[in-house]
């Protein structure tokens, strides 16, 4: 054990993730937090593809992949089976999906599992687009980001909408919800561990830097994540028993432009567009911090 974490790796090296992939770091730590008594279910996506080219596998835990939109439903089946076999209390179920498989095509199955109260932790590694298939826009893609289906052109400037607030959607189901960041990995570990003690569906969302998709440097995943936190693009919070609690605040907040400039997907944005994003981030932070301060049971 090092800092309360097992030394054993459950996501083996030698997988085929891209150089500098944020999601590979996320999985390594998520599985350490989950421990050996865990069944993992993956939605189709980057991490499923890079980890399981037959006959190889990077998974040292029992692992199931079914399709793109149904990881939460497949996990519900495992939950029910474990219950009937009398093994439910000794085994964790960890479902892993990207933002496409979670915000978009998998939302219905996840909502169903949450409403039924199937006991599982759903971890969304949010790289803010369909990266595995060539950087197409998703419901998580930030406004003005250039993707292959929302290219930043002369007439239309990248994506025209703000992303969906997925943590709040899950909180509305009564779930334990947490956001996490790989630059704050002890906080991530603690939230993962806590989720397994919760009844029903727990939802953890973590920003997952993607060098090919974000056009960022391959040695910058942690640094970019840190900037997302310190610029409040992705605040760190928990929603527990319907109340929001800020996990950690940046000591010295930095302007959003510091975060945007690390990624070429934002490089064509105008000064006005950057200002609009700053305003959006400030407003979201105002909402989240305000709700946290109020101490009210929101969800």
């Amino acid at each position: 054990m090092i800092m309360g974490l097992p030394e054993e790796e459950y996501f083996a090296s030698g997988h085929r993730a891209c150089a500098g992939c944020g999601a590979a770091i996320i999985l390594r730590h998520a599985l350490k937090a989950a421990g050996p008594n865990t069944i993992v279910v993956s939605a189709t996506g980057c991490m499923e593809v890079v980890s399981s080219p037959y006959p190889e596998t990077a998974w040292k835990l029992p692992w199931l992949h079914v399709a793109f939109e149904n990881a939460a439903a497949a996990a519900s089946g495992i939950d029910a089976a474990l219950k009937k076999m009398g093994k439910r209390d000794s085994v964790n179920i960890l479902v892993i999906g990207g933002d496409g498989g979670t915000f978009d095509i998998g939302l219905q199955a996840l909502s169903g599992a949450a409403e039924r109260g199937n006991k599982l932790t759903y971890l969304c590694y949010d790289n803010e687009a369909y990266m595995n298939t060539g950087i197409q826009r998703s419901g998580a893609t930030p406004k003005y980001a250039s993707t292959t289906t929302t290219p930043y052109g002369l007439k239309i400037h990248g994506k025209t909408q703000f992303p969906k607030n997925m943590p709040f959607i899950m909180a509305s189901h009564g779930c334990y919800v947490a956001t996490a960041n790989i630059s704050e990995f002890m906080d991530f570990q603690a939230k993962m561990k806590k989720s397994f003690s919760k009844p029903g569906v727990s939802y953890i969302q973590i920003l997952s830097p993607c060098p090919p998709g974000w056009k960022s440097q391959t040695d910058q995943a942690v640094k970019i994540s840190q900037l997302a936190f310190s610029s409040r693009v992705t605040p760190l919070y928990e929603i527990e028993d319907g109340r929001i609690k800020i996990s950690k605040e940046p000591v010295k907040p930095v302007p959003v432009s510091e975060y945007l400039k690390t990624q070429q997907r934002f490089s064509q944005m105008s000064a006005e567009e950057r200002a609009e994003i700053q305003k959006f981030v400030d407003s979201e932070w105002g909402k989240i911090s305000g709700l946290a301060k109020s101490g009210l049971k929101i969800f």
């Binding site: 069944i39 399709a67 497949a74 089946g77 009937k84």
Partner: peptide, 28 residues
């Protein structure tokens, strides 16, 4: 009947849950 019924939100999820339960090793 001592079985767990999963009230899914679609047939797509019903068959997906059947796959999950079968993978876990039970009759479905």
């Amino acid at each position: 009947l001592d079985a767990e019924m999963i009230h899914t939100e679609s047939e797509h999820s019903a068959m997906s849950a059947a796959i999950g339960a079968s993978a876990a090793g039970v009759r479905v």
